[in-house]
Design a binder for these strands. Structure first.
Lengths: 122, 122
DNA sequence: ACAAGTACTTACCCTAAAGTATGTATTATG
DNA sequence: CATAATACATACTTTAGGGTAAGTACTTGT
């Protein structure tokens, strides 16, 4: 799991940003290229690990797992493993994870308006 | 200005993420530790460059300018320079930049709930 | 003549995060 | 007996972006 240097300036500044800005707090949790996409896929229901992998083909397994673990550690998703062979593991949004959907939707709204050029007036 | 390798896998994947996910589109524009903070400060009205610098003391000038230029290039903020000496430059949110405020607020809402532990009930 | 203030610019370094490649355990199936 | 499938793990490399430090142009104040 990602080795992070404790005392780098970059970490200190992150702390500052976290305290100053709730938005940064959210970014910490859903930042990175893939996390929002994972959350989006999970918003339509439970998904198996392999389903996610197939749904987002260009993501590598290392990064997918890494993000899933982080999302789980942050309490945004819940992992359920059935003790069978071959393994059967599903992921779903937690209560907090579901709480992020309005954020996701607000972002999507803005993105679509932006892409449509609806902000180009003035 | 940031030199970006044209053909890296990381850039190709970014493209993929951008197409698949409007959220990533937004992240492209307001990602990075400082951009949301800058937008937040500008949400209360025009600010001079030096005001921003003083308001966010730990940010370095290089990074502040860099972000301001990117935000301007992305059409989120508007730069106004009066031809006087010493220079007098102000930044303000554009129409599109103002459109981001609901996103910022949705994020802030979630962050405060999360920090309050209001998501901890299952 | 020299420092101070504004709004930058530039060259170089370091770190976090993404990517590459390969390996693991377990069981069913041909 | 070897292969396939699932859900990971791990060692190593590369890249984007943030940080450090110093410099620039122009004018006013002392």
């Amino acid at each position: 799991m990602a080795t992070i240097k404790e005392n780098s300036t970059i970490q200190e500044n992150k702390q500052y940003a976290l305290q100053q800005c709730p938005v940064t707090h959210v970014m910490e949790k859903i930042g990175g290229y893939w996390k929002p996409i994972i959350i989006y896929y999970l918003s339509t229901g439970d998904k198996r690990y392999s389903e996610l992998k197939r749904a987002i083909p260009v993501i590598t397994e290392k990064v997918l797992i890494q993000h899933l673990k982080q999302l789980e550690a942050d309490g945004l998703i819940i992992r359920e493993a059935r003790p069978v062979v071959p393994p059967y593991v599903t992921y779903k949004l937690s209560y907090a994870g579901n709480g992020l959907l309005p954020v996701i939707h607000a972002m999507a709204d803005w993105a679509f308006k932006d892409l449509d050029g609806r902000f180009n007036q003035v």
